[in-house]
Computed example of a mutant assay.
Amino acid sequence: MKSFIFYFFKTFKDIKGFSAVFTTLVLGSILYGFFYPTAYKAQQAENLPIIVVDQDQSVLTNQIISTIRSNPNIQITEVTSNFLEAQQHVQAQKADAILLLPEKLSSDLLANPKSTGIGLYLSSAYLIRVKQIASGLAVSLEDVIQNHIEQFGKISHFRPELPIHQIPLFNTLSGYGSYIFPSVAPLIIHQTILLGVGMLIAGYREKFIWKPRPSEFFGFFTAIFTIGCLACFYLFGFIFWLYDYPRGGNFLGMLIAVPIFITCVIGLSMFIATFFDMPERVGHVLVPTSIVLFLLSGTSWPLQSMPLFLQWFSLCLPSTHAIQMFVQLNQMGVPVAIVIPKLLFLSVTGVLLLILAYIKLHKR
């Protein structure tokens, strides 16, 4: 027991003495937690540029344009009657969307409203951003057209349908920060442990043949485990509260999942570290994996839309299960029973990786 406690505190001392490891493993989570969400404090994009193609040039279209101008999310950069000109502006990324108000819009709306349409063409370069344009225009157009139809209610049998109210269940602000950071937070923990442990063990192996005894191995593991759990509670608790992100959906489930997740990540980190002979190589190889792991998590693009071999590969990654699991627990508040398959995968994978890491560290 004394040997275990000695190596437990020795690991903290080694981390403090190795500036690159201390910065990555300890300061990384703290600094990322503050600075990463700062870029998304506004939550929603504002003054998104659009072009209005007004081919009708009537009182109705003037009202529509005036209403859109008052919307803080949208900025009309140009009003023209030439659709091809507007299309060229979008292709040159000078605007994000085109609103087409077709010829005879006001008269057709009264004569045959069901066959009348307004065109909205969105740039696919920034899908999350243009969503804001679509929702902003929908509200503006609905109000103006409904008021216009009501003025002629006595001469037209058309009645506008009841509006559809979209109420988000988990991301109540429909903000980008509330959407992206809860998914990125587990990956921040994953990558800081992966890099920090990799550099620390590679540093040991560079100086001497590191074949840890069981007490040294588990003392090292427990020290990293402590840092990882505290980092999770810091991000999932304090940072989520500080930036008012959805949180606390299933607090007990999160407390159960964090130790299992950290154990799996440490096992993966220790096993991967045995393939490196110097700390610098760890950063060269593992830093670029962050983007790949996030893309394969199914957050930025649905897994079902990926090729089948990528779907299977992503399900072999602990990061995929962890990101999905913590979003379910922290934001959606699902019962623990729903995430049991993910907990079992992380538990079994973590134990196997720790065993493989121990064997490989003692192999000549």
Rank of each mutant, 00 (worst) to 15 (best):
M1D: 09
F4G: 05
F4P: 10
F12P: 01
K16T: 11
T23W: 11
L25W: 09
L27G: 03
S29G: 12
I30L: 14
I30M: 15
Y32H: 11
T38D: 14
A39R: 12
Y40R: 11
A45L: 11
I50H: 05
V53C: 01
S58A: 02
V59G: 01
L60I: 02
I68N: 08
R69E: 15
I76M: 01
I76Q: 01
E78P: 01
F83Y: 15
F83S: 12
E85C: 11
Q91V: 14
Q91M: 14
L101M: 00
L105V: 04
S107G: 00
D108I: 05
A111V: 10
K114L: 08
I118F: 00
R129F: 10
G136M: 03
L137K: 00
L137A: 00
L141Q: 06
D143M: 09
V144H: 02
N147R: 15
G153R: 13
I155N: 08
F158G: 02
H165D: 13
Q166S: 12
L169Y: 12
N171P: 00
P186G: 11
L187G: 08
I188S: 12
T192H: 07
L194Q: 05
L195W: 03
L195E: 02
M199E: 10
M199L: 11
L200F: 03
L200V: 06
L200H: 04
G203C: 03
R205S: 14
I209L: 13
W210A: 01
P212C: 03
P212M: 07
R213H: 10
F217S: 04
F217Q: 07
F220P: 05
F220V: 12
I224R: 09
F225V: 01
F225S: 00
G228C: 06
L230N: 04
A231F: 12
F236Q: 04
I239C: 10
D244I: 10
F251D: 13
T263M: 15
T263I: 08
V265P: 09
V265R: 14
F275P: 05
F276A: 04
M278K: 13
P279D: 00
P279N: 05
R281V: 08
V285H: 06
V287D: 07
S290I: 15
L296M: 01
S297Q: 05
T299E: 13
S300R: 09
W301F: 10
P302V: 10
M306Q: 00
F309K: 06
L310D: 00
L315H: 11
Q324E: 10
N330W: 09
P335F: 08
V336T: 05
V336P: 00
I338Q: 15
I340R: 06
L343Y: 07
L346W: 07
S347F: 01
T349S: 08
L352E: 05
I355K: 05
A357V: 09
I359Y: 08
L361N: 04
H362E: 00
K363F: 12
